[in-house]
Amino acid sequence: MIQTIIIADDSSTARMVTRRCLEIAGYQQARILDARDGREALVMVKSQGVDLLVTDLNMPGMDGTSLLRHIKSSPRLHNLPVLVISSMGNAARQEELLRLGAFAVLDKPVSPAAIVRALKELEATEEREA
């Protein structure tokens, strides 16, 4: 069950839109935390019990791809599900991000329906693997 979610995006507008989409998608009871870049998100992921990371790609400092690499190469964090929401997610990059370990890559502007679909697929995958 997803109880704590981190949204990493340098735009407060994008974080607000993603938060609303998550709430509409049924996660209004979850604790949703904001991170303004990849480094801040990584610190939060390491220090808090997090069930889902939603990240942008194009952020100053540590970008979303580096954040994903850090998480998936960490023995302690590599099971954390990572959802990428970006305006740079064409097919070639999607493939690369999925290979790096993201469970889904969504285009901006994101919709609640797209988030619901992605999280349902994640749940189904986790149930199959349990």
Partner: peptide, 14 residues
């Protein structure tokens, strides 16, 4: 991002 996807298609990164 939309502009670059429209211009370059799905297979070229930007």
């Amino acid at each position: 991002g939309r502009f670059m996807q429209e211009l370059l298609g799905p297979d070229q990164n930007f």
